[in-house]
């Protein structure tokens, strides 16, 4: 029942960046993730879709070790990161995460937000961290806001700043948790443009999203979650035009209809 169908390409024998097997997570009685399997290869853009409460966010949080898992394994570059002996901070240093509510630090300027982790978790020199952050802010049209505090910015600008903050640590894997869900519709575009840009540049990403047309456009793989399971996964072209599972079909009909 959980058999995820092969996406028609099986030539990739290389070790995936991220390999998830049999992941399980429960909050008390409530089962949030149930036997989740997922492979993410370098350069993949994996889109998690599904109604709210289907486990998308929890899966991302588990991947960043922000939530302890109840069973199953996660391998990052072939090393099991769900092993109790693994240094969680070292793992998180290699992964970038962006949240729905931006979660920028309000007491720091945009630039300070972006240099905090490089300087204090990665040991990058002040000068270099600054140059790196300014370069990325410039690239994503935020150079003029570097010295402002986040609350002075619009939602779209804040979320772009949050993406830059995650990129400043040069993560091998970027996790994006519904980063446009809290934005006004006219601000969604500017944030998605960044992700589009990153996808084109080959950044490996796993993202939970409600933006179906965007998922269809940038994803290499789309996973449909329901009730904490990946019910179906495959390339966007097939997932959106010819989903095998009845549930997937009805979900897509619901979200694409209006």
């Amino acid at each position: 029942m959980s058999a995820p169908d092969a996406g028609g390409e099986s030539t990739r024998d290389r070790e995936p960046v991220l390999r998830v097997r049999g992941l399980r997570k429960a909050y008390g009685e409530r089962l949030v993730l149930d036997d989740v399997d997922l492979d993410v290869h370098a350069g993949d853009v994996v889109c998690l879709i599904g109604s709210s409460g289907s486990g998308k966010s929890t899966l991302l949080r588990c991947l960043d070790l922000l939530e302890p898992v109840d069973d199953g394994t996660i391998h990052l570059d072939g090393v099991e990161i769900t092993d109790p002996a693994v240094d969680e901070r070292a793992v998180r240093r290699r992964i970038g995460m962006v949240f729905q509510a931006y979660n920028l630090f309000p007491h720091l300027t945009v630039l300070e937000n972006c240099t905090l982790a490089p300087r204090h978790a990665h040991g990058v020199r002040r000068r270099e961290a600054r140059d790196r952050a300014l370069g990325l802010l410039e690239r994503f049209g935020l150079a003029g806001h570097a010295d402002q505090h986040p609350d002075r910015l619009s939602g779209g600008q804040q979320q772009r700043a949050a993406v830059v903050r995650a990129l400043c640590t040069r993560p091998e894997l970027l996790l994006l948790d519904e980063i446009t869900a809290a934005l006004d519709p006219e601000l969604v575009g500017e944030v998605l443009d960044i992700v589009r840009d990153l996808a084109a540049g080959g950044t490996t990403m796993v993202l939970a999203t409600h933006e179906m047309s965007f998922a269809r456009e940038v994803a290499t793989t789309v996973c449909f979650l329901e009730g904490g399971r990946i019910l179906e996964q495959g390339p966007p072209a097939r997932m959106f035009s010819d989903p095998t599972h009845e549930r997937t079909r009805s979900f897509l009909k619901r979200v694409l209809a209006p």
């Binding site: 959980s2 097997r21 149930d34 036997d35 399997d37 069973d71 199953g72 394994t73 092993d83």
Partner: peptide
């Protein structure tokens, strides 16, 4: 891309038992 559907038995919900790896971790 598909993880060769081995071993992932779709166990009925509720009848979950920790896997050997999880017991090891505990």
């Amino acid at each position: 891309m598909g993880p060769s559907g081995s071993g992932t038995t779709a166990a009925a919900a509720g009848a979950w038992r920790p896997s050997p790896r999880e017991l090891e971790r505990r």
